[in-house]
Simulated assay, not measured.
Amino acid sequence: MQREPLSVVVITLNNAATLDACLSGVDWADEIVVLDSGSSDDTLAIAQRRGARVATHAFDEFGPQKQRAIDMASHDWILNLDADEVLSPASRAVIERALTNPQYAGFRLPRRERMFWTVQHPWSWRNTHLRLYDRRRGRMNDVEVHSAMEVDGPVKTLWRADFINDSDPDIASRIERINRYSSALVAHKLRRRQRFTGLRMVVYPPVFFLRQYLFKRYFLNGWAGFIASVVGANYVFLKYAKLHEARRCGHGRPPV
């Protein structure tokens, strides 16, 4: 029995350093769609060399931009990757089996994180993400930064079809990213009217660290796992600290 045809969609902006590895890992797909938002490096040349169908559109938010790329695809089954993510070689066979008469609306894939000078130990906990799905049964949500596909129907995790996130080659890069992300999430949290911000600032960071370092077994990654857990706890703190600041200062405007 033949599998469902598959489109891979990727949004880009100056991703020349990682895009070639990303696209080479999915060169077996029926189609690759790259939606760029104004790259000034070799991103577009790399995408074209890899046989991708390339288009450009000004960037507004992650959710709408990813949805545009999905809408461009020729096939209903979508594999959505970021430009700094690489599918493992063993994932192809797992995905192709899953797409042979699929009984689910989508599939979650486990993600291994780059931890600065190393890659996450395979025995530490890997978060799963809905990246393979039938676009007829869902759309991207509107959560700033952490936008994700939401589908109507059952979802299964393909534990043997993992991918590596290669976004943070060093500590400075991760800290810069969490600073940007925590700022971008303030508007979303204001809309949700999240309560007990002060309590969350105090309680959540140490709880996050313990959960990450001990229960998710980041200690298996040595000092890289310890540092990643501390930086992650700082991200949790910054999200609520910036929300508290926005409320005290009138949504980010200092009081006169």
Results as ranks from 00 to 15, higher is better:
Gly198Asp: 07
Arg135Leu: 03
Gly225Asp: 05
Asp42Tyr: 02
His251Thr: 05
Pro102Phe: 01
Ile95Glu: 06
Pro64Ile: 04
Gly250Thr: 02
Leu238Phe: 09
Ala52Gln: 03
Gly138Tyr: 05
Phe163Ala: 11
Ala90Met: 09
Glu96Leu: 14
Met72His: 11
Val151Lys: 04
Val9Ser: 08
Leu190Arg: 01
Val186Met: 03
Val143Met: 10
Asp134Pro: 02
Arg137Phe: 12
Ser74Pro: 06
Leu220Pro: 03
Ser39Gln: 00
Met140Gly: 05
Gln67Glu: 15
Phe215Pro: 01
Trp77Val: 08
Asp84Phe: 03
Pro122Trp: 10
Leu87Arg: 01
Val151Leu: 07
Arg136Glu: 06
Asp168His: 12
Pro255Lys: 04
Gly25Trp: 00
Leu210Val: 13
Leu6Glu: 07
Ser173Ile: 08
Val230Cys: 12
Gln65Pro: 04
Asp170Ile: 00
Tyr181Thr: 09
His75Met: 03
Asp36Arg: 04
Glu176Gly: 11
Pro154Thr: 03
Asp76Gly: 14
Val119Lys: 13
His121Lys: 13
Ile164Lys: 06
Glu150Ser: 07
Trp123Val: 06
Phe196Val: 02
Arg248Cys: 09
Gly250Phe: 12
Asp152Cys: 01
Leu19Met: 04
Gly138His: 02
Val155Tyr: 03
Trp77His: 08
Arg248Val: 08
Leu79Asn: 05
Lys242Leu: 10
Ser88Trp: 05
Val94Lys: 02
Met1Arg: 12
Arg139His: 13
Ala16Gln: 08
Ala52Phe: 02
His146Phe: 15
Pro255Gly: 03
Glu176Phe: 00
Ile46Ala: 02
Arg114Gly: 00
Asp60Val: 11
Gly222Pro: 09
His188Phe: 13
Leu13Met: 06
Gln65Lys: 10
Phe196Met: 12
Arg126His: 15
Arg111Gln: 14
Gly25Pro: 04
Val231Ala: 06
Val256His: 14
Asp152Ser: 10
Val230Leu: 11
Gly225His: 03
Lys216Trp: 13
Val94Glu: 12
Asn165Met: 15
Arg247Leu: 14
Pro206Ala: 03
Arg193Ser: 07
Gln120Pro: 15
Leu87Pro: 02
Arg111Met: 12
Arg68Gly: 12
Ser7Gln: 13
Asp82Gly: 10
Arg160Lys: 15
Ala228Phe: 13
Tyr240Leu: 00
Asp168Arg: 11
Leu79Val: 05
Arg92Ala: 07
Arg195Thr: 13
Arg191Ile: 00
Leu79Lys: 05
Arg68Leu: 14
Glu113Pro: 07
Ser147Ile: 01
Asp142Arg: 11
Val143Gln: 10
Gln2Leu: 11
Arg126Ala: 09
Leu132Met: 15
His146Cys: 08
Arg3Ser: 14
Val236Ser: 02
Gln120Val: 06
Arg111Ile: 15
Leu132Gly: 11
Leu185Asn: 03
Phe107Val: 05
Arg114Glu: 01
